[in-house]
Design a protein around this nucleic acid. Structure first.
Lengths: 162, 162
DNA sequence: TGTGATATGTTATATTGTAACATTAAGTGT
DNA sequence: ACACTTAATGTTACAATATAACATATCACA
């Protein structure tokens, strides 16, 4: 099977995902989604402009990126990380069902993002607490800031040198 | 006791707080801190420019606000809400001791912020979970987005009218 | 009172985000 | 195939946010 076929398979996979999500699979939308998936980390809209230009040879105006990202977020194919104003590809795009609470761990130094799963019970307790204070969660998404293992190691190294 | 004396008492209270926090109690710093306290809600740096001009008759360049806010945050007199890029006065400035985990509930519609206290055990479990994924929390602060009771009511009203 | 350190102001500019409108492309019915 | 409508993207302009580099002012202390 040639590279071209692999590529086409991937493209058609995206088309399928878009169709399932109920949004039209246009060239630009797929490119942005693909870029975000390829990048494997959270990107800002302007990061994506760069990424698409360098890695996909596609020059898009920032405005289009903003618009398309909004669309992808609304379709739940992409998550917006409010704490850092970046976007990340949903890891559940293959399981075609609404997914439960999503928790993101964001490294405040290198900005690496991990989508993790915490015990459902713990998240339920947390939600209950928040609701007991009168707040209704609008999205089942939590973002937590921390320092990832890599950056912890770097920090320790720097400290021992100083 | 005259208004003037009340004001002076308040000012001197601020001076005391600043001294305790180890930062010099300059006029501008106190003004910004006071403004944030008076406002009683989270403000962006540019919001604060407006607020100080209108309510304190003090015109400060945004740059100074940024700088002073950074300082106040470092001194733990003010919290920065990363999710909304706003600042809010710490509610514990009177208790002169390092305070434990702080949780903020932020209304995603009206931006009202409440600093709440959740069960220490729940927060400990949450921290443990986050750390078990290799992330070390850099600040004991959680921000949760939701819709406050007031805005919930407004939404229901709007829905019934439609 | 002079002098170094700290605090604030000025100017300029980078970055991020949106609004208003123009253009292009894609469907739809005849 | 044709005109016609709608959706998608691009262009331009600009508002809002944030920071960098440097200038000036203020304070503390010898």
């Amino acid at each position: 099977m040639s590279q071209k076929n692999n590529k086409n398979n991937q493209e058609s996979e995206f088309v399928e995902i878009f169709n399932y999500a109920g949004i039209k699979p246009t060239e630009k939308r797929i490119a942005i989604f693909k870029g975000l998936k390829m990048a494997g980390k959270a990107l800002s809209p302007y990061d994506l402009v760069q990424y698409c230009k360098q890695n996909l040879g596609l020059t898009l105006p920032a405005v289009s990126i903003y618009r398309i990202l909004d669309l992808l977020v609304a379709a739940d194919l992409v998550h917006k990380l409010d704490t850092v104003n970046k976007y990340i590809c949903c890891t559940h795009i293959d399981c075609h069902k609404p997914h439960p609470h999503t928790q993101f761990l964001i490294c405040s130094l290198c900005q690496k993002v991990e989508e993790v799963h915490m015990p459902a019970e713990l998240m339920a307790q947390l939600s209950a607490q928040i609701q007991s204070h009168g707040y209704q969660l609008n999205s089942p998404q939590f973002e937590f800031q921390g320092i990832c293992t890599d950056c912890q190691a770097l920090e320790e190294e720097a400290a021992s040198n100083a």
